[in-house]
Design a protein around this nucleic acid. Structure first.
Lengths: 331, 331
DNA sequence: GAAGTCTAAGAAATCGATTTCGTCAAGAGT
DNA sequence: ACTCTTGACGAAATCGATTTCTTAGACTTC
């Protein structure tokens, strides 16, 4: 591939002039023409590695997500990518598997690769952002906040938990359990607090074992649902705090021979690739792609020099389908 | 972050010696100890941009996939990532949306970013690998082959189409249609030729309109299935040539009020997040993660200097669940 | 005509790691 | 004791783009 020196030689100017032409600095029209002609003839593409070394930064954003196989996160990734590409940035997608060790490794890569900024969904409250923050690289946390001085975009998780649970009560269910993610994760806590609040307000109380903690994956939801169904007084409905645990719960319900339309299920998050009738499950729709897009806008603003005070943007979820009163959902 | 010069100054050696220590060249034990101590004290992390500029390459692989929201491709990506990380390589995931323009742009990025190699599922037979191949960067094509001199890993697609179709005949269906991806894509062609071969061999022939081409997405399968159901003589079963089109077909079947267990459906590819009884759908399981892992192994071998002749590795699919004879699948 | 100012453009330093070339010291052989 | 060989290590070039500093020429003013 041609270098700036070859373009300069062909155009009869200095390499500095070639650089000025492509970076929009002042160069006479005559010499601009010479440089562009030469570059076109040589099919010149600037070497980004050299530029990155000299400028000490890049046009790359690191995006750290905990589960690449969760469609919530792939939708979020597309939102980040949409916005980043509008500004000429590339996105490196880093799948952490909710593993703090992998997450730290990716953060170190972001630092040593001079990425311009990081968007991440932290694997835990103990995520170590010290190195990247101390380098002055902007960070935006999504879906979960951190104690570090970084911007954040999140869902109103408590309201989402409330909406999911209220929908089940409105549909006539009375023994409503909750399958939550791992304890200690802020998003999990907020969502099941929403469940608990509605259960307390509607006066039915909860049974022992009606709150089950699971991992966020399909198999976590599956195991938790089996545990719920094995109780002396099983629930007649369940709220899951994410989409994949709802899938697992549905599988367990089907395996138990329960027709899905007679058991109440509300998920915080859209179920991917739904083939059941839409009324079978209440889905609290999370704006994942917009969440990603918002996070990228905030990060790009910081990269561009934005020095406004740190802020947290909170997005809202919405319930789908809207729930009419009465027993069961499949009306 | 500390540079190699600062480590050298603290250790009392030259920068070249520091570089030699970390790159395993011959350095006296005494000086090795001095360098390692100094590096630890300064928390030295080598600047990969500088190294990449001097060495003219990087430890990054570009992975170009057509649909990040298709779990087949996220599983493939995990396989690539698994293997790459074993060798200290990072993977940049590039989502092309089956768009040749986006694909070309990502290939140009791979070239100008000096990525060590590329794994891609080509958006079309006309993909332009000229620039990246002429730079000598290794390329491995997955899932689809190309006319360029590159290695490939693929599924035995024809056999997969045959297996899916045969399973439906074995289950007792007789009017078996096919929902295939866009015409002209090798993988599509091979899979529906497998369908056509079995239909011809079993002597039932096909009806006008029994072969529907769609895009590979859920909505493509949905529209194609509605078109099939609207025929004067609708089919009693269908083969879809990928997983997401099966999802769309199932949605259309449910919307038409047909119990899914009475309609035959076989998909080439595992349906993601299945909540129907496993016997409802025949799934031809594709080893996506292993496909990714194999592609990465081949690419890393090339990056490492492998000069064996170009080769294509063909992996096999398997049918799940195994199909007993008789009408319908839900036995 | 001389002095001062401004602008375009070239020379060279810079970014940080790697690698090439040259030097010096130690060891072996005669 | 001298010569030759080998290995460790330092100096400096290299990768390619950007940017700083300097210079030359054009223009204006007195």
């Amino acid at each position: 591939m041609a270098t700036i020196y070859e373009v300069a030689a062909l155009a009869g100017v200095s390499p500095a002039t070639v650089s000025r032409v492509f970076n929009g600095l002042t160069v006479s029209e005559e010499k601009q023409r010479l440089v562009r002609d030469a570059a076109a003839r040589l099919a010149f593409t600037p070497n980004k590695t050299a530029r990155r070394l000299r400028k000490q930064s890049s046009e790359i954003i690191a995006l750290l997500i905990p589960d690449i196989e969760n469609p919530f996160y792939t939708a979020l990734a597309r939102g980040v990518e949409d916005r980043a590409q509008e500004s000429g940035f590339s996105v490196v997608l880093c799948n952490t598997d909710d593993n703090p060790g992998k997450e730290l490794r990716y953060l170190q890569i972001a630092a040593s690769e001079q990425m311009a900024g990081v968007i991440l969904s932290p694997a835990s409250d103990e995520v170590d952002l010290g190195a990247i923050v101390s380098l002055g690289r902007p960070v935006v946390a999504v879906d979960r906040t951190t104690p570090y001085p970084v911007d954040a975009v999140k869902i109103d998780n408590r309201a989402a938990g409330i909406a999911a649970t209220a929908a089940l009560f409105d549909a006539g269910y009375r023994r409503i359990a909750c399958i939550a993610g791992p304890a200690g994760i802020e998003m999990t806590e907020d969502r099941f607090l929403g469940w608990r609040q509605v259960v307390a307000a509607r006066g039915t109380g909860t049974h022992e074992g009606y709150l089950q903690h699971a991992n966020f994956r399909v198999e976590g939801g599956h195991a938790a649902m089996k545990a719920l169904l094995a109780l002396d007084t099983p629930p007649d409905a369940v709220v899951t705090t994410n989409n994949l645990m709802a899938i697992g719960a549905l599988q367990a319900i089907a395996e138990a021979g329960i027709p899905p339309e007679t058991f109440g299920l509300a998920a915080v998050g859209e179920l991917p690739f739904m083939v059941l009738a839409p009324a079978t499950v209440v889905q609290v729709r999370l704006p994942a792609r917009y969440l990603g897009r918002t996070a990228a806008t905030m990060l790009l603003d910081r990269i561009g020099g934005d020095t406004q005070p740190l802020r947290t943007v909170v997005l809202r979820a919405e319930v789908s389908p809207p729930v009419p009163p009465g027993k069961g959902l499949a009306l």
